[in-house]
């Protein structure tokens, strides 16, 4: 899966969680939750759909490594590569 495809999927999933926002306008270093006004309940729902859609299970201790779009993308790419190997 290419970075563009992952990004597109992320935007789709975020739009589902926060329908009144425009996730595609997120900048690389924006804090996702703060920018899109996502509370802890919706953040957990996002982790759930991420697992459903991409098969990536983010453990609680790694939440801090996925706060911005850049960090989240890099985390997902790494996870996909690990799955391959």
């Amino acid at each position: 899966m290419k970075e563009d495809e992952i990004k597109k999927t992320l935007f789709q999933l975020l739009k589902k969680i926060a329908p009144e926002t425009e996730p595609s306008e997120l900048q690389d270093d924006d804090n996702i939750r703060e920018t899109l006004n996502i509370d802890s309940f919706d953040a957990l729902q996002f982790i759930v759909v991420l697992d459903d859609k991409l098969g990536i299970e983010i453990p609680e201790r790694d939440y801090g490594k996925t706060t911005t779009l850049k960090l989240l993308l890099s985390y997902i790419k790494n996870a996909i590569e690990k799955q391959k190997s």
């Binding site: 802890s40 957990l44 453990p59 609680e60």
Partner: peptide, 17 residues
Amino acid sequence: LQEANSQRSIKKRLLPV
């Protein structure tokens, strides 16, 4: 909570509240 969540699937995770 951290310990409890490490033993749960994502869908069953608990929030602090």
